[in-house]
Design a protein around this nucleic acid. Structure first.
Length: 483
RNA sequence: GGCCCGAUGGUCAAGCGGUUAAGACACCGCCCUUUCACGGCGGUAUCGAGGGUUCGAUUCCCUCUCGGGUCACCA
């Protein structure tokens, strides 16, 4: 078995592309086959080197290293389509010689006009065969006019083009609906559908897993395979990823590129795990898997046909799970860039600063499901004023209205002033003794202090919050609460 | 509009003629924690509609509806 992932380097690496790559990767590894990566850059205008690098980096970041293809090499290179032009030319020439393809001199304006006319008549727009049987004289005439021809494939009429899809089952199209389509553009570069066929065949691809949007391309590719006398690979079309409004996931749905998730502080293991669960379901009841476990469990039988809505809540939950496994040091590494971006951490922290920042990260880790989220959680440590949580305003007021509110706050302030050093342990002891002295139980001691210092009903461990603020800042806040 | 694909809770989904219709996220409740969270336990909630086939349809067939994809000298 040999599968491939063939991205076009025309922009940010989309999350859907990552999922296609993942399913190919998983299948290849599961079947002990080969995972090949090739670059489809025949769109000269939109392809960029930067995008190619971005895609390769993202693939590696996600843990999908390829066995053959771009950069790593192999027996079937080159693996960038623009470097394979002579290979395509050979087969185009062959098709023309055999009369299976022909030059078309129609201009884009002429084609546009014809298409509009067909649409107006309610017909399926397709090439009308204008240049299918040109005479020598006509060809000479067009050449004299300086027209640059495209090459079209003669698509046989009255045939059923069908294939058995690994996820969708039998799918059939009528060849009459296709029309002679362009396989080489007027600039001499083959069109995607043609290059794909030549590559898939010459590279020995046996199975193609790609997104559902390619279903309607498949009959065209099948017709090319047929014209060339080759056998087509087995296809599997996976459904699309949708936004919350059930429309194809796009920019307006938020982050759509792998890089954006990386930048937001998501872990590659989490993204892989999440993507795998979008459209594929495991046998058992567990849903948390490492890449190796996914490979072990993966099967095309359990790939869903219907499109899936991208659920950020679930991604966050999975990411939270993987973040829990991080050591304090790793957590700090993940969060530091975000703290720096927010101006909460210096570019190169000293040992003391690092120790404080690490405690900061550890303190709020139960409330952070991806790196960038830490900024919100620690905001209060970097502002002088207390921002009260509006959503729980009533609860906060209730705490303040408690008869013992000021008693507790004042008592804690005294204990704090008396401390030699503020540490989580010291704070804990202080709170404990207040409970003993006032005979108040947990909540009635913790909440007044929490509200006075943070203005929130929820949050991280109070002992650490106080320690992080330090004696002076905490005292000032307690003071303000008493006023 | 033509062609193609799809339809189980709010979301991801299992199911493949007979089930009390799994599980996960989210939500709600309880327990734990002398606070908050984490964690544990439990709960609410789903077969798009109508026809068939069948002793019996979520499951098979048809129609409708809805959703999506695609109709390029883009991939």
């Amino acid at each position: 078995m040999k599968v491939r992932f063939a991205p076009s380097p025309t922009g940010p690496f989309h999350i859907g592309g990552a999922r296609s790559a993942l399913f190919n990767f998983l299948l290849a590894k599961k079947e002990k086959g080969t995972f090949l990566v090739r670059i489809e850059d025949t769109d000269l205008a939109r392809s960029t080197k930067e995008s190619e690098e971005n895609i390769k980096a993202a693939l590696k970041w996600l843990g999908m290293n390829w066995d053959e293809g771009i950069d790593v090499g192999g027996d079937n290179g080159p693996y960038r389509q623009t470097e394979r032009l002579d290979i395509y030319k050979k087969y185009v020439d062959q098709l023309i010689k055999e009369g299976k393809a022909y030059y078309c001199y129609c201009t884009e304006e002429e084609l546009d006009k014809e298409r509009e006319a067909q649409m107006a008549r309610g017909e399926t727009p397709k090439y009308n065969g204008h240049c299918a049987h040109l005479t020598e004289e006509q060809i000479e005439q067009y050449k004299k006019e300086g027209r640059k021809p495209t090459v079209r494939l003669r698509v046989p009429l009255n045939q059923t083009v069908a294939f058995d899809d690994m996820v969708r089952g039998h799918i059939a199209f009528e060849s009459n609906g296709i029309g002679d389509f362009v396989i080489v553009k007027s600039d001499g570069i083959p069109v995607y559908n043609f290059a794909v066929v030549v590559d898939d065949h010459t590279m020995g691809i046996t199975h193609v897993i790609r997104a559902e949007e390619h279903v309607s391309n498949t009959p065209r590719q099948l017709v090319i395979f047929d014209a060339l006398g080759w056998q087509a690979p087995t296809y599997g079309h996976i459904s699309l990823i949708l936004g919350a409004d059930k429309k194809k996931m796009s920019k307006r749905h938020g982050a759509t590129s792998v890089d954006q998730y990386r930048q937001q502080g998501y872990l590659p293991e989490a993204l892989v795990n999440f993507l795998a669960l979008l459209g594929w379901s495991p046998e058992g009841e567990d849903e948390l898997f490492t890449m190796d476990q996914l490979i072990e469990q993966f099967s095309m039988d359990h790939v869903a046909k219907n499109p899936a809505v991208f659920d950020i809540d679930k991604l966050n939950w999975i990411n939270f799970h993987y973040m829990k496994k991080l050591s304090d040091e790793e957590l700090y590494e993940l969060c530091l860039p975000h703290l720096q971006a927010a101006g909460y951490a210096p570019q190169s922290p000293s040992a003391d600063e690092k120790a404080w920042l690490m405690m900061l990260c550890t303190c709020v880790r139960d409330h952070v499901s991806y790196g960038a989220q830490i900024v919100d959680q620690v905001k209060m440590f970097f502002t002088d004023s207390i921002e009260e949580d509006q959503e729980h305003a009533a609860d906060i007021q209730a705490v303040k209205d408690e008869d013992t509110y000021k008693t507790v706050v004042a008592a804690f302030k005294d204990k704090l002033q008396a401390m030699d050093q503020v540490t989580p342990g010291a704070v804990k002891a202080a709170i404990k003794s207040i409970m003993k002295e006032t005979k108040l139980k947990g909540k009635f001691v913790f909440m007044p202090i929490r509200v006075a210092i943070t203005g929130q009903m929820h949050g991280a461990d109070l002992n650490y919050i106080v320690t992080l603020f330090g004696k002076d800042k905490t005292a000032a806040r307690l003071e303000a609460a008493l006023a």
